[in-house]
Design a protein around this nucleic acid. Sequence first.
DNA 1: AAATTTTGGTTAATCGTTTAACCAAAAAAT
DNA 2: ATTTTTTGGTTAAACGATTAACCAAAATTT
Lengths: 364, 364
Amino acid sequence: MILIKIINTLHLLKRLSKYIKKLNTKKKTTIKDIANVLNISTAAVSKALHDDSRISKKTKKAVKQVAKNLNYQPNHLASALRKGKSNLVGVIVPRTNSNFFSSVIENIEEVLNKKGYNIIITQSNESYKKECSNIDTLLFTQVDGIIASMANETIDLEYYEKIKAKGIPLILFDRGENDLNVDYIGINDYESSHVIVEHLVSQGRKRIAHIGGYKHTRIFNNRIRGYVDALKKHGLPLDNELLLESSLTTADGRAKMAELLKLKNRPDAVYIAGDYAALGALQLLNELHIKVPEDIALVGFGNEPFTAMVTPTITSINQHSAEIGKQAALTFLEHAKKEVINQSLNKIILDAELIVRDSSNLKV
Amino acid sequence: MILIKIINTLHLLKRLSKYIKKLNTKKKTTIKDIANVLNISTAAVSKALHDDSRISKKTKKAVKQVAKNLNYQPNHLASALRKGKSNLVGVIVPRTNSNFFSSVIENIEEVLNKKGYNIIITQSNESYKKECSNIDTLLFTQVDGIIASMANETIDLEYYEKIKAKGIPLILFDRGENDLNVDYIGINDYESSHVIVEHLVSQGRKRIAHIGGYKHTRIFNNRIRGYVDALKKHGLPLDNELLLESSLTTADGRAKMAELLKLKNRPDAVYIAGDYAALGALQLLNELHIKVPEDIALVGFGNEPFTAMVTPTITSINQHSAEIGKQAALTFLEHAKKEVINQSLNKIILDAELIVRDSSNLKV
DNA sequence: AAATTTTGGTTAATCGTTTAACCAAAAAAT
DNA sequence: ATTTTTTGGTTAAACGATTAACCAAAATTT
């Protein structure tokens, strides 16, 4: 009995060594190699590796042992081709070097990796053209789903419709579009504006300006609407001079602030729909020795880390990037579970949080 | 003649419409569908789509037309499986939300996309464990190559050897290891320290401290060596109290600066091997109303955008992220061209550039 | 002891593309 | 008019894993 075991082991060793030699020639190990070593079919190997009930424990153990020895790594392409899914999820963001997006991505990855998915990250750099090419790339790579935040430039939705037409789950976050009728995760922009205006009013401000994003982008439109309605609510008049549309870059924030300073009747507070633009505005104010918040109070949006680094620190809105990432990933997983993909407008709206800092806080 | 053409066209239309119906049922078009419509073999279709010389112009045109009408998109998995390459390149970075890494990535992507490659970005979050799992993931996804910058924690190189063993090109940038014997792209860290020390000496500083990164990481080790040698060169004594090792996070930068301030004989300049740590140090100095640069001059490393945003702005080293990304991508392409992968230590070292800002510049 | 069920596999087709090897018909060369 | 070359394809076998359908032997039931 023991002798047989030893002989068997020796036999196995011999076969193994032959294959290990092959390994060194750099050809990757396949289930066929494992099958050959053990003199069983590739089907048995495949089943053993997936713990199929129709394979004996002994065989499973042997298969796994040999797989380890031969340093076997499953060929993802082959199984993906056969199963019709790639276990890859595409992510499109305007850019990765903003803290908001990189945090969203990190959390998407964390949730999806646990479920065996990998993500492919692409950047649109706020360009519609680049975004289209990203979509093509992702579809070409046979991703199982796409999680995206739209570029500033994007107005035409044709390319996104293409994703839907392919029957691939599409989930939008932050920068979305109602018209696409797909899942969306974001914060309550309309409400955020209210919170900001309320805060400024409580600080005694009477002439509150708003440097907003492009009106055609929903989130920025909501922030503008919120601003307008909040003014009304607090009995403040709406002055069109005080409502500007911007690309929200640092440079444009500076430029739009300069415009506001040219007015005969300057604002005493400025709410800017993006932190980078708020930074530009602050830099100009600092250079001109206009006191913040005493002369003009400043509020940004996004809670980028630098808002806590500059002087004075900038009041901003925390967008709950981690939660947005998680929810986006979970929403995708919901779709992935279902056989039929039934896309519909299903919004998850998170409450935003105002982080009050020096740029708007008069320490009385 | 014309009649025949019309009849042919009608015939084609009929076949097409049948397939367009099939399209709506969401099954993806394959070359088989195109072959059926035109009554030719799939091989001919494949060749036509790749502009093979053995296919007539007429057929090529027809194939391309039908492909367009059926909204054909090649199945990347199938071709990758057959050709034994995925046209995917894996990128591993400590994190994406630093401007340096996101810029490197952007440039890698730009170069590789043009050559038909896509990239998969993964983050290690400075953790060795996460880095290993990232490598597994990428190998599993059958990437054609890996471009990586190592996590702070990484000392053991076993996992990277695994990549080499697989015969997949590995290119390191910024954070590399000589022992791995693979291509490396980075800046001249040793020389950068010299430039910094020289600058501080020219500003009249006599006691220059250095908050460095972990000594086991090559780049940080080089910066330390450069610092030590540059002091010697300028006839300044090396005081061990002034040389600290740090994780270079914002919090640790602050902590290490606090240590330096406790010294009986304080430094009059501090060179910090990372911008985030320099920021932490600056925040502490500002809070304690220690004047920068009058009392203590500060120099960071990396030229992160916020160095130009804070007060005072921080002098730093520009690492040429764009160029590093491009060179890394080009190096990969070199390997991809060759049949046999012959990895060897092949360094591309770029000259770094000192950006002088307020934190070290006494305007006399 | 014969019939049935369970165990532990095997066989062969399949996913969509590529490609080596082959071939018939047309064109060119001798 | 025959041979050679070129043109424009076709056939069939991969790539590696999965899975539906099948089956022999062993175990269990009747």
